[in-house]
Amino acid sequence: MNIKSDKYKKNVSKADIDLPRFTINNEEKKIYVSAKEGNFLSNNNILLSKNVRFKSNDFSIETEKVIFNRTEQTANSKSKSLFKAKNTIISSDGFNIFDKGDKIVFYGKSFIVLK
């Protein structure tokens, strides 16, 4: 009986949102935001976690945790991040997305490869 209960608990997600999806609308392009889980920190701030991905036509960013602000359309991550664009890879200790995706700040010791 106990074993069944544990199994049941494992299958229940603690996330407020399963597979959350958002879009950052820039004048130039759209950035699609996706993750496995999302938890509300406040009305506007959502903690996205597990396989968090920002994707536009030009680039993608992958990380594990991001705080996404729905109204400001900003994102802030303090976990290891990997940016990929055409012939470019950037790895960093975190990132911030401002100005609807026009400005991306990569934090900490950063490593860029231009091919």
Binding site: Y107, S110, I112
Partner: peptide, 9 residues
């Protein structure tokens, strides 16, 4: 290859 100590904007 580019490395920085305090990030990239």
């Amino acid at each position: 290859e580019i490395t920085t100590d305090d990030g990239i904007e």
